[in-house]
Simulated scan of single mutants.
Amino acid sequence: MTTKYYYQMKRFIYIITDRNRNNLHVGLCSDLVKTLKFYSDMPSLFFDNAQQLNRLVYFEEINNEEMAMERFKFVSTFTRSQKEKMIRSVNADWVDLTIGLKYEQGMRVRTYVRPSFASRLQQVTV
């Protein structure tokens, strides 16, 4: 008897803009940090250097792939004013959210060993 495990991957819907907020790009990805790194590595892929998409101003995390795709299609049809209203509802000052994501990712990757446990390890190995 075989058992199938279905792993639900997180999906992110995001809006990224340039420094002058001229362009609002809606995207869908499974790894937001990696996607943002791609945008920074390829600054003139979509636009010239003055219109680099480098500021993450909005994102949603959705645990179901089908729901994420439906939400992406829905948000993609928004007008600019609708997107701006959605961004201002959670990020009124249009702050770049990339810094917070990188900080959180660094916290998750870091392993934590209690000091008392670490000293016991040194005593055993010495």
Rank of each mutant, 00 (worst) to 15 (best):
K83H: 11
M107C: 05
V90L: 06
S44R: 02
Q105E: 15
N23Y: 08
S76L: 03
K4C: 14
I62Y: 06
G27V: 08
I15G: 06
N63L: 08
S81F: 08
V95D: 12
F12R: 01
A118V: 02
M86T: 08
T35M: 09
R110L: 10
F46L: 11
T111R: 09
L56W: 01
S30V: 05
S81A: 07
M69Q: 02
R108M: 14
T79E: 13
Q51A: 14
V113I: 12
L97N: 08
V126G: 15
T77K: 14
F78D: 07
T3D: 14
E104K: 01
A50N: 13
M107V: 09
R114W: 09
I16M: 07
R80E: 14
L45V: 01
D31M: 00
Y103G: 01
R55S: 03
L56F: 03
D18G: 04
Y6A: 11
V95R: 13
N63S: 12
I15W: 00
L53N: 06
Q105Y: 09
M107W: 00
K4M: 15
I62W: 01
S30C: 05
L36M: 07
I87L: 04
M107A: 05
R21M: 10
K37V: 10
L101V: 02
I99P: 04
K34P: 03
L121Y: 13
L28P: 03
Q123S: 11
L24A: 01
N91Y: 09
N63M: 08
V109Q: 01
V124I: 05
Y58E: 05
R55W: 04
I15S: 06
V26I: 00
R19P: 04
R110K: 09
C29R: 01
Y14G: 08
S40L: 03
F46S: 01
S116H: 07
A118R: 07
M107I: 06
L24W: 11
E104G: 07
S76P: 11
L56P: 11
N20A: 06
L56A: 01
I87H: 05
T3M: 15
Y14E: 08
N23E: 10
M1Y: 10
D48N: 07
G27A: 10
